[in-house]
Each structure stands twice: as C-alpha cells, then as structure tokens.
Simulated assay, not measured.
Amino acid sequence: MATGCFQWQHESSALPIDNLSVPHAFGQGYALCSPARVLLPNSVRPTQAEAIASVFTDTEKRDEHWNAAQAQGMTCQFVYARIFLPQFFPVAASETQETAGAA
C-alpha cells in the first residue's frame, strides 16, 4: 500500500496507545547527506532527483548548486526509515490499573 512517497511495510509488534495498537512502519528512499556526514531528514524522497529537488528548489540553477554541493562533499544516500509514534511518558500497565481504581 502506497502512502505519500514511501511503500510502507508494517511491523507485527505495536505500541499500545489508549488501548489502540498503531504498528510501526518502514520506508525507503534517498536523503541528502551533508559534508559533515549528517543526514537531512526532511530531504527523504523516493528518488535521488526528488531528494535533491527538495533542498535545491531553484529549478534553473539546481544542477549548478548540486554540483557545487557535491564538490564540497554533499552526497545523496539510499536510506531506510522507521516511522513510529513516540512515547514521551510511558506508563506501566500496573500504574494505569492503580490510577483507574483510585477514581
């Protein structure tokens, strides 16, 4: 099933959130990598051309700017992404039951 720019694959394990299970998803694509070896997460796209276009938005000078960036050490890397719902304050099941009984 295609969603956005990724072909998602769902994992069988899931995070419990309010008695709902939301499975993790995985995707793959390309992302730009800075000369300092830092991936630019907002550049992840299904093709290299789209990843480059996401950062270098001026269509007339895109090739010129990309060539200059490559000369400085920027690359376009194949990446996998794991998408999940964050749990900032996880609560153990026993604590949830104790709180529910207090009301």
Rank of each mutant, 00 (worst) to 15 (best):
W8D: 10
C76P: 02
S21K: 12
T47K: 06
A69F: 04
L40D: 13
S43W: 05
P23R: 13
P46Y: 00
S54M: 00
Q72A: 12
N19G: 15
A14G: 07
Q28L: 05
A49G: 12
E50G: 02
G73V: 01
L40V: 04
I52H: 04
R45E: 10
A71R: 13
F56Q: 03
L40G: 02
Q72H: 10
Y30D: 01
I52F: 05
M74A: 11
L40Q: 07
Q28H: 14
I17T: 14
D18C: 10
E50L: 14
D63M: 12
M74W: 15
Q72P: 00
M74D: 03
K61A: 15
D58W: 12
N67G: 00
T57V: 14
C33F: 01
A69C: 13
S34I: 00
G4I: 00
E64Y: 01
L32C: 12
R62C: 00
P16Y: 15
V55A: 04
A14R: 10
A25R: 12
W66G: 01
E50S: 04
C76H: 06
G73Q: 01
I52E: 03
S21G: 01
G27Q: 13
V79W: 08
F26C: 02
E50T: 10
R45W: 08
R62K: 04
I17R: 09
Y30N: 01
A49T: 14
A53D: 02
W8M: 07
A51G: 01
L39E: 02
E50I: 04
Y30P: 03
G29N: 04
C5S: 15
E60L: 13
D58F: 05
D58P: 08
Q28R: 15
V22I: 10
Q9Y: 11
P35Q: 10
N67E: 14
F26Q: 04
N19R: 13
G73Y: 02
C5N: 10
I17Y: 11
W66F: 04
V38K: 05
Q77W: 06
V44M: 01
P46N: 00
Q77I: 11
F26K: 06
V44L: 08
I17K: 09
E11H: 04
N42I: 11
D18N: 14
P41W: 09
V22P: 00
A36P: 01
W8N: 04
T75N: 09
Q77K: 11
I17L: 15
T47E: 08
K61D: 15
T59R: 11
M74H: 13
T47F: 04
N67D: 08
A31E: 07
T75G: 06
V22K: 07
P23T: 06
R37F: 04
Q28D: 13
N19D: 15
C33L: 09
H65C: 08
Q7M: 09
N19P: 02
P41L: 10
T57D: 14
V38R: 09
Q70L: 00
A51R: 03
A51D: 00
S34A: 05
Q70N: 05
Q9S: 13
K61G: 03
I17G: 12
T3V: 11
L15D: 09
A69S: 14
A69P: 02
W8C: 07
W8H: 05
F78N: 05
S34L: 07
L39C: 10
Q7C: 07
Q28W: 11
Q28F: 06
R37A: 13
P23F: 06
V44A: 00
S12H: 11
V55Y: 05
A68K: 14
A25N: 07
D63N: 14
L20Q: 14
